[in-house]
Design a protein around this nucleic acid. Structure first.
Length: 273
DNA sequence: AAATGAACCTGTTTGC
DNA sequence: TGCAAACAGGTTCATT
């Protein structure tokens, strides 16, 4: 479900609800995720107050008292929602964080591509999950000039470039397609063969697309929801993603679906060159 | 080094 | 109707 906008929406919805509460206890019903849950390490979060909620790439970071950070990644199908502490365990609910507010932060992930772990806050930047990550697209550092420099010598398609987390983070399959549509760039075009002016346009398009999606609560295709279970509305604004066979809203040509690196790509043959 | 495909999972949709 | 194949928002590893 989740690309940068969805995680950011989750972060913003969660922050006012949990900051200031303490983690009273932690229950791991099923520690079988992308990496096995380290119950011991997670247990060290117990008794600590939640000080803030940050985001890095598609990771949600809950900063705790005394220098620890709880990290959550939703993978493809993960959800993190706040429910009453007494709520029944639901199907595929892996972990419950019982808070001092008598609520439970429920992590559930059907496909188990997600992650939950904790570590000293100071070790975050050097941790293997974070140390190789690229630019945050909403930061000032993401400019056409910088992107073009990163693309030097890369002949892979621009869509693969955008989805490579070592270069730019947070842009997944939906928003790569949408940003390229907005910039009028064909997804199969080699990254090395994009002009300076189009790199500037693309940088702005990425930022605008993500910002718009955040404003509309993210994209709910099947089951994305914020901390209170609310769906996002950006789906109705999608220009190309999952619209194969339908007419382009801008030029009327039929949206196409191709496969790149094993993932579906959607684009308009009229608007994107 | 860069690029591609497969793998990790379960649930839902599609097509014969 | 039933069954099997295809497909799904991500990341990482192995192989060219």
């Amino acid at each position: 479900m989740p690309e940068l906008p969805e995680i950011e929406v989750l972060r913003r919805s969660l922050e006012p609800l949990v900051v200031g509460t303490s983690i009273d206890s932690i229950r791991v019903w099923n520690g079988d995720l992308r990496e096995p849950v380290d119950r011991r390490q997670l247990g060290r979060c117990r008794g600590r107050k939640i000080l803030g909620a940050r985001r890095r790439a598609k990771y949600l970071l809950l900063d705790l008292e005394r220098g620890r950070t709880l990290v959550v990644h939703l993978g493809m199908s993960g959800r993190l929602t706040l429910v009453p502490a007494t709520a029944e365990r639901e199907a595929h609910e892996h972990i419950g964080l019982y808070l001092s507010s008598a609520q439970r932060l429920r992590f559930r992930d059907t496909r188990r591509f997600g992650l939950v772990f904790a570590l000293p806050t100071a070790e975050l930047v050097d941790d293997r999950h974070f140390s190789h990550l690229g630019l945050e697209p909403l930061d000032e550092g993401l400019t056409g000039v910088v992107l073009q420099r990163l693309a030097k010598g890369r002949r892979a398609p621009i869509k693969s470039f955008l989805m490579d987390g070592r270069l730019v983070v947070g842009v997944g399959n939906i928003y790569a397609a949408e940003a390229l549509f907005r910039a009028g760039i064909h997804p199969a075009r080699s990254a090395a063969r994009i002009s300076s002016s189009r790199w500037e346009l693309l940088a702005r398009s990425i930022r605008q697309t993500l910002a718009d999606a955040i404003d509309q609560g993210g994209t709910t295709l099947n089951d994305f929801a914020d901390a209170l279970g609310e769906s996002g509305y950006f789906k109705v604004s999608l220009s190309v993603y999952d619209r194969a066979g339908e007419p382009c809203r801008r030029c009327g040509r039929t949206i196409r679906r191709i496969v790149q690196s094993g993932r579906s790509t959607f684009y308009c043959p009229g608007c994107q060159r």
